[in-house]
Simulated assay, not measured.
Amino acid sequence: MKGVISGIKRMEIHDGDGLRTTVFFKGCPLKCIWCHNPESISFNKQIAFFENKCMNCGLCNHVKSEITAKYCPTQAIMVFGQEYEVDELVYELMKEKEFYKNSGGGVTLSGGECLAQSDFATALSRELFQNGISVNIDTCGYVNNEVLKRIIPYTDKFLYDIKAIDNNVHKKCTTQDNYIILENLKFLCENNCKIEVRYPFVKGYNDKESDKIGSFLKDLKGIIKVKVLQYHHFSGSRYKALNMVNTLPVAETLYQDVQLAVNILKSYGLNAINGIDES
């Protein structure tokens, strides 16, 4: 069984507790206009050319391909979408086992949407869990409920995105409705899962959703934290490198904007925090 991975980032501190390795899966069912991981949207392998990194050395002979990417000295050419067998990826992730153990960290499966490759994600989680590695699942929640049932036994915590409660707002920002997402969150809570809700806050798009999110979450069990994330548009260069249409909003979200949302969520009795404070 093979999975398609867009990248692996080691020594992360923002994707769960302790030091973690984050595995970014290729492919996502949503098309969020503010997506900061555009290389993870498509399920297909992609080749990116970062023109600003190119020093015109000629090694690639101006042919942007997977083969020439291996020889690019400045990583101006990069391939997103490496295939791994479960055992192969487990071997890579186990290299940091001592760091996980000493920091209370582990591995976070992210994306894209890691659960869109459900069989691979479940098998990977099971192997890591059985090797004593903490597993967090970073998900948008737009998945079949059966997938959640299969992966719950091997998951310590879910990092769960809630982008909007108003379905019209959600569809405008992600192209999909949110019924499945909200129902799956309730299902996880009913099954005693630990959940950190993440609210990507984009001024002018979903910034009016704070009260609705607070009202929806306040009576759910298992919500240990609600983190409000500041929107930024730093990934614009990746859209260009991948030859993708840049959908990033031209919006400035300030600290005080995020803090206002945090205060609203706190008024519902939630353990809300400003994600900027953890940066």
Score class of each variant (00 low, 15 high):
residue 2 K to E: 13
residue 8 I to C: 15
residue 11 M to I: 15
residue 11 M to T: 14
residue 11 M to A: 15
residue 13 I to G: 11
residue 15 D to L: 06
residue 23 V to P: 12
residue 24 F to G: 14
residue 25 F to W: 09
residue 34 W to T: 09
residue 35 C to A: 10
residue 36 H to D: 11
residue 40 S to Y: 04
residue 41 I to S: 10
residue 42 S to Q: 10
residue 42 S to K: 10
residue 43 F to S: 13
residue 44 N to L: 14
residue 47 I to R: 13
residue 48 A to F: 01
residue 51 E to K: 15
residue 54 C to R: 05
residue 55 M to V: 15
residue 57 C to Q: 07
residue 58 G to M: 06
residue 58 G to P: 05
residue 63 V to L: 11
residue 71 Y to I: 15
residue 71 Y to R: 13
residue 73 P to F: 06
residue 73 P to W: 02
residue 74 T to W: 08
residue 78 M to N: 10
residue 79 V to M: 09
residue 79 V to Y: 03
residue 83 E to S: 08
residue 87 D to I: 03
residue 88 E to F: 01
residue 89 L to W: 07
residue 93 L to F: 05
residue 98 E to K: 15
residue 100 Y to M: 12
residue 102 N to V: 14
residue 103 S to Y: 06
residue 104 G to Y: 15
residue 106 G to P: 14
residue 106 G to A: 08
residue 107 V to W: 05
residue 109 L to V: 11
residue 113 E to N: 04
residue 113 E to I: 02
residue 116 A to Q: 12
residue 118 S to H: 06
residue 119 D to T: 07
residue 120 F to N: 01
residue 125 S to G: 11
residue 126 R to V: 09
residue 126 R to G: 09
residue 127 E to M: 08
residue 129 F to I: 01
residue 134 S to G: 11
residue 136 N to L: 09
residue 140 C to L: 01
residue 140 C to E: 02
residue 144 N to E: 15
residue 145 N to W: 03
residue 146 E to V: 09
residue 151 I to W: 03
residue 154 Y to W: 06
residue 155 T to E: 00
residue 156 D to V: 03
residue 158 F to M: 01
residue 159 L to A: 07
residue 163 K to S: 08
residue 166 D to L: 03
residue 169 V to T: 03
residue 171 K to F: 02
residue 174 T to Y: 05
residue 174 T to V: 04
residue 175 T to S: 08
residue 176 Q to H: 11
residue 176 Q to W: 01
residue 179 Y to D: 15
residue 181 I to F: 06
residue 182 L to M: 07
residue 182 L to E: 07
residue 183 E to C: 04
residue 184 N to Y: 01
residue 185 L to W: 00
residue 186 K to E: 13
residue 190 E to D: 15
residue 193 C to W: 06
residue 193 C to L: 05
residue 194 K to C: 02
residue 197 V to E: 08
residue 199 Y to K: 01
residue 201 F to E: 02
residue 201 F to C: 01
residue 202 V to Q: 01
residue 202 V to S: 05
residue 206 N to T: 05
residue 208 K to M: 00
residue 210 S to Q: 04
residue 211 D to Y: 11
residue 215 S to W: 10
residue 215 S to G: 09
residue 216 F to D: 12
residue 218 K to C: 14
residue 221 K to A: 08
residue 221 K to W: 00
residue 222 G to H: 00
residue 225 K to M: 09
residue 225 K to N: 07
residue 227 K to H: 11
residue 230 Q to K: 02
residue 236 G to E: 09
residue 237 S to L: 13
residue 237 S to P: 03
residue 238 R to L: 11
residue 248 L to R: 12
residue 248 L to K: 12
residue 249 P to R: 10
residue 250 V to L: 14
residue 253 T to M: 04
residue 253 T to R: 02
residue 259 Q to R: 10
residue 260 L to E: 13
residue 261 A to M: 08
residue 261 A to W: 05
residue 262 V to H: 05
residue 265 L to H: 03
residue 267 S to W: 08
residue 268 Y to Q: 10
residue 269 G to N: 10
residue 272 A to E: 09
residue 275 G to Y: 12
residue 276 I to G: 00
residue 277 D to S: 10
residue 278 E to L: 15
residue 279 S to M: 14
